[in-house]
């Protein structure tokens, strides 16, 4: 309870901070829109040259791409400060004050910043999802909508968990930005049908960095009725929860290795 109140106090502060840079926020939203449009257009240009990609039509691919943005946006809004932590904060000694306060360091990092740009992604993803679903002729049901909502929220939590896990390496090694970036970029793998990858990569994306579970599988459930939406929802909640718990434990363990700089 105390931490919920504390989180909202920090959230308020983070929003006030962010509002100081309205111009940058707007440019950031435009940047994300352009970034996603560019990637999407690239896919379009490529697929346009062939009849279909392993059986996926252009609209089905658009649906996949659109949905992949949703959990990403959810994570993006809440845990953006992990990037700073992994790249610069520890190296520049800016994490020291966090260790001098009587509340968990990870909590302070998560509460340090919010990223309103995420709404840009959420809206763009939603719009694409809608357009492509209409063109594909998806037969919506309560279960499928629930599945997509669960996959967005718990998918976001899973991404946050994985970010925490790899940002934690910076506690010992001062920087883990490149590693985090590399792992995070694996989300990009799920923008294409998973069948284009060899078995080892498919296993990696389902079992080790389970981005396929939160993105590919729900989309296959909606487009091809490949999975039962309720069972899949439960699976996603379970996997996301497990990843988050594991990551927080790992972070706390790595905190013991944290050392400030000498000077």
């Amino acid at each position: 309870m105390r931490y919920i109140k504390l989180y909202f106090t920090c959230l308020k502060r983070a929003i006030i901070s962010r509002l100081q840079y309205k111009a940058d926020s707007i440019i950031g939203i435009i940047g994300f829109l352009i970034s996603n449009t560019a990637t999407l257009l690239s896919i379009y240009f490529i697929i346009d040259a062939i009849p279909s990609l392993n059986g996926w039509s252009i609209y089905e691919l658009g649906f996949l791409y659109g949905f992949s943005m949703m959990p990403v946006a959810f994570d993006h809004f809440f845990s953006d400060e992990l990037w700073n932590t992994a790249y610069w904060k520890i190296k520049n000694g800016k994490l020291d004050p966090f260790f001098l306060r009587p509340i968990p360091v990870l909590f302070q990092i998560i509460a340090e910043a919010v990223q309103p740009e995420a709404f840009g992604e959420l809206i763009l993803g939603g719009v694409m999802l809608g357009i492509c679903a209409a063109n594909v002729g998806v037969k919506w049901s309560f279960g499928l909508i629930l599945l997509l909502v669960i996959a967005t929220i718990f998918g976001g939590i899973l991404i946050t968990g994985i970010k925490i896990f790899f940002a934690a390496f910076a506690l010992k090694f001062k920087r883990s930005g490149t590693l985090l970036q590399g792992v995070y970029n694996m989300i990009g793998y799920t923008r294409y049908p998973i069948s284009i990858y060899p078995l080892i990569l498919r296993t990696l994306l389902t079992c080790i960095l389970p981005f396929a579970v939160i993105i590919t599988m729900p989309v296959e459930a909606v487009l091809f009725s490949a999975f039962n939406p309720y069972l899949l929802s439960l699976l996603i909640i379970g996997v996301a929860g497990a990843v988050l718990v594991l990551s927080v434990l790992f972070w706390n363990w790595m905190e013991r290795f944290y050392q400030s700089t000498g000077s």
Binding site: D24, I27, G31, I34
Partner: peptide
């Protein structure tokens, strides 16, 4: 803008694409 993140996104994306 006194901040760079948005600009950075814009720059990288445009160039990459």
């Amino acid at each position: 803008t006194t901040a760079y993140f948005g600009l950075y996104m814009l720059k990288e994306t445009t160039i990459q694409f």
